[in-house]
Protein backbone atom coordinates (compact mmCIF):
# COMPACT_ATOMS: atom_id res chain seq x y z
CA UNK A 1 0.00 0.00 0.00
CA UNK A 2 1.42 3.39 -0.92
CA UNK A 3 2.13 5.94 1.77
CA UNK A 4 -0.41 8.39 0.31
CA UNK A 5 -3.31 5.95 0.50
CA UNK A 6 -2.53 5.32 4.13
CA UNK A 7 -3.60 8.89 4.93
CA UNK A 8 -3.13 10.17 8.43
CA UNK A 9 -1.79 6.88 9.75
CA UNK A 10 1.13 7.25 7.39
CA UNK A 11 2.31 10.52 8.87
CA UNK A 12 2.30 8.83 12.23
CA UNK A 13 4.42 5.94 10.94
CA UNK A 14 6.88 8.25 9.23
CA UNK A 15 7.67 9.82 12.58
CA UNK A 16 9.11 6.56 13.84
CA UNK A 17 12.70 5.48 13.50
CA UNK A 18 13.14 2.32 11.52
CA UNK A 19 14.00 -0.41 13.97
CA UNK A 20 13.52 -3.44 11.78
CA UNK A 21 13.32 -3.94 8.07
CA UNK A 22 14.24 -6.55 5.57
CA UNK A 23 17.56 -5.47 4.06
CA UNK A 24 17.01 -4.45 0.44
CA UNK A 25 19.67 -6.98 -0.53
CA UNK A 26 17.58 -9.88 0.78
CA UNK A 27 15.01 -11.03 -1.78
CA UNK A 28 11.45 -11.03 -0.48
CA UNK A 29 10.39 -14.64 -0.72
CA UNK A 30 9.72 -17.64 1.50
CA UNK A 31 12.88 -19.51 2.38
CA UNK A 32 13.07 -23.28 1.96
CA UNK A 33 14.83 -23.81 5.27
CA UNK A 34 13.25 -25.83 8.07
CA UNK A 35 11.81 -23.91 11.03
CA UNK A 36 14.53 -22.93 13.48
CA UNK A 37 17.43 -23.53 11.10
CA UNK A 38 20.39 -21.18 11.41
CA UNK A 39 21.04 -20.90 7.65
CA UNK A 40 18.36 -18.27 7.16
CA UNK A 41 19.70 -16.09 9.97
CA UNK A 42 23.20 -16.14 8.54
CA UNK A 43 21.89 -15.37 5.05
CA UNK A 44 20.18 -12.33 6.43
CA UNK A 45 23.24 -11.18 8.35
CA UNK A 46 25.44 -11.37 5.27
CA UNK A 47 22.91 -9.38 3.29
CA UNK A 48 22.64 -6.78 6.06
CA UNK A 49 26.40 -6.38 6.03
CA UNK A 50 26.48 -6.08 2.25
CA UNK A 51 23.80 -3.41 2.37
CA UNK A 52 25.39 -1.49 5.22
CA UNK A 53 28.79 -1.52 3.54
CA UNK A 54 27.05 -0.51 0.32
CA UNK A 55 28.80 -3.21 -1.70
CA UNK A 56 25.83 -4.87 -3.40
CA UNK A 57 27.15 -3.87 -6.83
CA UNK A 58 30.56 -5.40 -6.27
CA UNK A 59 29.62 -8.43 -4.19
CA UNK A 60 29.80 -11.90 -5.76
CA UNK A 61 28.78 -14.90 -3.69
CA UNK A 62 29.44 -18.60 -4.17
CA UNK A 63 26.77 -21.02 -3.00
CA UNK A 64 27.70 -24.58 -2.02
CA UNK A 65 26.13 -27.96 -2.56
CA UNK A 66 24.23 -28.52 0.67
CA UNK A 67 21.13 -27.03 2.20
CA UNK A 68 22.36 -23.56 1.18
CA UNK A 69 22.53 -24.49 -2.49
CA UNK A 70 19.65 -22.09 -3.14
CA UNK A 71 21.31 -19.15 -1.34
CA UNK A 72 21.01 -17.31 -4.66
CA UNK A 73 17.24 -17.40 -4.36
CA UNK A 74 17.56 -15.09 -1.37
CA UNK A 75 20.68 -13.02 -1.89
CA UNK A 76 20.14 -10.23 -4.37
CA UNK A 77 23.67 -10.15 -5.68
CA UNK A 78 25.46 -11.90 -8.54
CA UNK A 79 26.14 -15.48 -7.53
CA UNK A 80 27.63 -18.72 -8.73
CA UNK A 81 26.66 -22.16 -7.50
CA UNK A 82 29.68 -24.43 -7.13
CA UNK A 83 30.15 -28.20 -7.26
CA UNK A 84 30.19 -29.98 -3.89
CA UNK A 85 33.26 -28.87 -1.97
CA UNK A 86 34.67 -26.57 -4.63
CA UNK A 87 33.26 -23.21 -3.60
CA UNK A 88 36.62 -21.72 -2.64
CA UNK A 89 38.22 -22.81 -5.91
CA UNK A 90 35.34 -21.14 -7.75
CA UNK A 91 35.74 -18.04 -5.57
CA UNK A 92 39.46 -18.04 -6.34
CA UNK A 93 38.71 -18.02 -10.05
CA UNK A 94 36.31 -15.10 -9.60
CA UNK A 95 38.59 -13.08 -7.34
CA UNK A 96 41.63 -13.52 -9.58
CA UNK A 97 39.65 -12.28 -12.56
CA UNK A 98 37.98 -9.42 -10.66
CA UNK A 99 40.27 -8.48 -7.75
CA UNK A 100 38.24 -5.41 -6.80
CA UNK A 101 35.03 -7.37 -6.21
CA UNK A 102 33.96 -8.57 -2.76
CA UNK A 103 33.86 -12.33 -3.05
CA UNK A 104 32.59 -14.77 -0.45
CA UNK A 105 31.76 -18.44 -0.12
CA UNK A 106 29.05 -19.97 2.01
CA UNK A 107 29.59 -23.64 2.85
CA UNK A 108 28.43 -26.44 5.12
CA UNK A 109 30.67 -28.80 7.09
CA UNK A 110 30.43 -31.62 4.56
CA UNK A 111 31.22 -29.22 1.76
CA UNK A 112 34.06 -27.35 3.44
CA UNK A 113 35.57 -29.93 5.80
CA UNK A 114 35.09 -33.26 4.00
CA UNK A 115 34.87 -33.28 0.22
CA UNK A 116 36.36 -29.79 -0.09
CA UNK A 117 39.14 -30.07 2.52
CA UNK A 118 41.95 -29.67 -0.01
CA UNK A 119 40.34 -26.59 -1.56
CA UNK A 120 39.69 -25.11 1.89
CA UNK A 121 43.29 -25.49 3.01
CA UNK A 122 44.91 -24.38 -0.21
CA UNK A 123 42.66 -21.40 -0.79
CA UNK A 124 43.53 -20.12 2.66
CA UNK A 125 47.16 -21.09 2.26
CA UNK A 126 47.30 -18.90 -0.84
CA UNK A 127 45.77 -16.20 1.31
CA UNK A 128 43.01 -15.53 -1.20
CA UNK A 129 41.47 -12.23 -0.21
CA UNK A 130 37.95 -13.57 0.17
CA UNK A 131 35.51 -14.20 3.01
CA UNK A 132 34.61 -17.80 3.84
CA UNK A 133 31.43 -18.40 5.81
CA UNK A 134 31.35 -21.90 7.28
CA UNK A 135 28.09 -23.25 8.68
CA UNK A 136 28.94 -26.06 11.06
CA UNK A 137 25.71 -27.90 11.87
CA UNK A 138 27.40 -31.21 12.61
CA UNK A 139 25.44 -33.13 10.02
CA UNK A 140 24.73 -33.53 6.31
CA UNK A 141 21.45 -31.68 6.24
CA UNK A 142 20.60 -31.82 2.58
CA UNK A 143 21.11 -35.52 2.01
CA UNK A 144 19.07 -36.54 5.02
CA UNK A 145 21.17 -36.43 8.15
CA UNK A 146 24.31 -38.48 7.62
CA UNK A 147 27.47 -38.08 9.69
CA UNK A 148 29.50 -34.95 8.98
CA UNK A 149 33.22 -34.52 9.71
CA UNK A 150 32.16 -32.32 12.64
CA UNK A 151 29.63 -34.76 14.15
CA UNK A 152 30.38 -35.25 17.86
CA UNK A 153 31.38 -38.55 19.41
CA UNK A 154 28.34 -40.63 20.24
CA UNK A 155 25.95 -38.63 18.06
CA UNK A 156 23.37 -40.69 16.23
CA UNK A 157 23.00 -39.91 12.54
CA UNK A 158 21.60 -41.94 9.66
CA UNK A 159 25.08 -43.38 8.99
CA UNK A 160 26.11 -43.69 12.64
CA UNK A 161 23.03 -45.52 13.92
CA UNK A 162 24.83 -46.48 17.13
CA UNK A 163 26.44 -43.10 17.55
CA UNK A 164 29.74 -41.85 16.17
CA UNK A 165 32.40 -44.31 17.24
CA UNK A 166 35.82 -42.66 17.10
CA UNK A 167 37.59 -45.93 16.38
CA UNK A 168 35.37 -46.55 13.41
CA UNK A 169 34.59 -43.05 12.09
CA UNK A 170 37.47 -40.92 13.27
CA UNK A 171 37.32 -37.75 15.31
CA UNK A 172 35.23 -34.62 14.95
CA UNK A 173 37.33 -32.39 12.70
CA UNK A 174 38.20 -28.97 14.05
CA UNK A 175 39.10 -27.54 10.70
CA UNK A 176 38.85 -23.98 11.93
CA UNK A 177 41.72 -24.46 14.39
CA UNK A 178 43.66 -26.21 11.62
CA UNK A 179 43.34 -23.44 9.08
CA UNK A 180 44.04 -20.75 11.68
CA UNK A 181 47.64 -22.01 11.68
CA UNK A 182 48.07 -21.07 8.04
CA UNK A 183 49.90 -17.81 7.32
CA UNK A 184 47.26 -17.03 4.69
CA UNK A 185 44.48 -16.93 7.31
CA UNK A 186 43.99 -13.29 8.32
CA UNK A 187 40.96 -13.43 10.57
CA UNK A 188 39.47 -16.63 11.97
CA UNK A 189 36.55 -16.72 14.36
CA UNK A 190 33.90 -19.12 15.59
CA UNK A 191 30.46 -17.70 16.27
CA UNK A 192 26.84 -18.81 16.65
CA UNK A 193 23.32 -17.55 15.96
CA UNK A 194 21.35 -19.29 18.71
CA UNK A 195 20.68 -16.12 20.77
CA UNK A 196 20.16 -12.46 19.96
CA UNK A 197 23.53 -11.67 21.45
CA UNK A 198 25.23 -14.36 19.39
CA UNK A 199 23.52 -13.04 16.27
CA UNK A 200 24.90 -9.56 16.93
CA UNK A 201 28.39 -10.94 17.44
CA UNK A 202 28.22 -12.94 14.23
CA UNK A 203 27.13 -9.84 12.37
CA UNK A 204 30.07 -7.91 13.77
CA UNK A 205 32.42 -10.71 12.70
CA UNK A 206 30.96 -10.67 9.17
CA UNK A 207 31.29 -6.89 9.08
CA UNK A 208 34.95 -7.14 10.07
CA UNK A 209 35.61 -9.85 7.51
CA UNK A 210 34.15 -7.88 4.60
CA UNK A 211 35.97 -4.74 5.74
CA UNK A 212 39.26 -6.61 5.77
CA UNK A 213 38.57 -7.77 2.24
CA UNK A 214 37.76 -4.22 1.15
CA UNK A 215 40.94 -2.95 2.72
CA UNK A 216 42.80 -5.68 0.87
CA UNK A 217 44.77 -6.49 3.99
CA UNK A 218 45.89 -9.75 2.49
CA UNK A 219 44.67 -13.09 3.64
CA UNK A 220 41.46 -14.98 4.00
CA UNK A 221 38.80 -14.18 6.58
CA UNK A 222 37.08 -17.26 7.90
CA UNK A 223 33.89 -17.21 9.94
CA UNK A 224 32.59 -20.44 11.36
CA UNK A 225 29.03 -20.31 12.59
CA UNK A 226 28.21 -23.24 14.86
CA UNK A 227 24.61 -23.82 13.92
CA UNK A 228 21.80 -26.27 14.39
CA UNK A 229 19.83 -28.69 12.27
CA UNK A 230 16.57 -29.43 14.08
CA UNK A 231 15.36 -31.77 11.31
CA UNK A 232 18.62 -33.67 11.02
CA UNK A 233 19.12 -33.80 14.77
CA UNK A 234 15.49 -34.86 15.24
CA UNK A 235 14.83 -32.11 17.79
CA UNK A 236 12.56 -29.12 18.14
CA UNK A 237 14.28 -25.79 17.41
CA UNK A 238 14.37 -25.03 21.14
CA UNK A 239 15.83 -28.43 21.99
CA UNK A 240 18.43 -28.00 19.28
CA UNK A 241 19.51 -24.66 20.73
CA UNK A 242 19.81 -26.25 24.16
CA UNK A 243 21.84 -29.03 22.62
CA UNK A 244 24.16 -26.42 21.18
CA UNK A 245 24.72 -24.84 24.60
CA UNK A 246 25.04 -28.10 26.52
CA UNK A 247 27.10 -30.18 24.10
CA UNK A 248 28.31 -28.62 20.90
CA UNK A 249 29.85 -25.41 22.28
CA UNK A 250 31.81 -27.52 24.76
CA UNK A 251 33.61 -29.09 21.81
CA UNK A 252 33.53 -26.13 19.45
CA UNK A 253 34.32 -23.21 21.75
CA UNK A 254 33.05 -19.86 20.52
CA UNK A 255 35.28 -16.85 20.06
CA UNK A 256 38.08 -15.43 17.93
CA UNK A 257 40.79 -17.92 17.02
CA UNK A 258 43.02 -15.57 15.04
CA UNK A 259 42.73 -11.82 14.87
CA UNK A 260 44.56 -9.47 12.55
CA UNK A 261 47.83 -8.06 13.83
CA UNK A 262 47.41 -4.74 15.67
CA UNK A 263 48.62 -1.77 13.69
Amino acid sequence: MSAASEGIQCAYIEDLDEVWARPSTLIETTMHYCPGCGHSVVHRLIMEVIRELNIQEIAIGVAPVGCAVFAYHYMDIDMQEAAHGRATAVATGIKRMLPDRMVFTYQGDGDLAAIGTAETIHTINRGENIVMVFINNGIYGMTGGQMAPTTLEGSITSTTPSGRDLAMHGHPLKITEMIAMLPGAYYVTRQAVNTAKAVRKTKRALMNAFKYQMEGKGGTSFIEVVSNCPSGWKMTPIESNQWLENHIFKNFELGDIKTPPKE
Partner: peptide, 26 residues
Protein backbone atom coordinates in the same frame (compact mmCIF):
# COMPACT_ATOMS: atom_id res chain seq x y z
CA UNK B 1 46.78 -12.31 -16.71
CA UNK B 2 46.63 -14.43 -13.61
CA UNK B 3 48.30 -17.81 -13.19
CA UNK B 4 47.63 -20.31 -10.42
CA UNK B 5 49.26 -23.67 -9.92
CA UNK B 6 46.28 -25.28 -8.27
CA UNK B 7 46.40 -28.00 -5.62
CA UNK B 8 44.77 -30.50 -7.99
CA UNK B 9 43.08 -30.74 -11.34
CA UNK B 10 39.77 -30.67 -9.48
CA UNK B 11 40.61 -27.31 -7.98
CA UNK B 12 42.01 -26.07 -11.30
CA UNK B 13 38.86 -26.80 -13.28
CA UNK B 14 36.68 -25.28 -10.58
CA UNK B 15 38.79 -22.13 -10.73
CA UNK B 16 38.13 -22.19 -14.47
CA UNK B 17 34.40 -22.41 -13.68
CA UNK B 18 34.59 -19.38 -11.39
CA UNK B 19 36.76 -17.39 -13.77
CA UNK B 20 34.66 -18.28 -16.81
CA UNK B 21 31.61 -17.14 -14.88
CA UNK B 22 33.01 -13.60 -14.91
CA UNK B 23 33.10 -13.70 -18.72
CA UNK B 24 36.89 -13.43 -18.92
CA UNK B 25 38.97 -15.72 -21.12
CA UNK B 26 40.23 -18.59 -18.98
Amino acid sequence: GSFIQAESEIAAINMVYGGAGTGERV
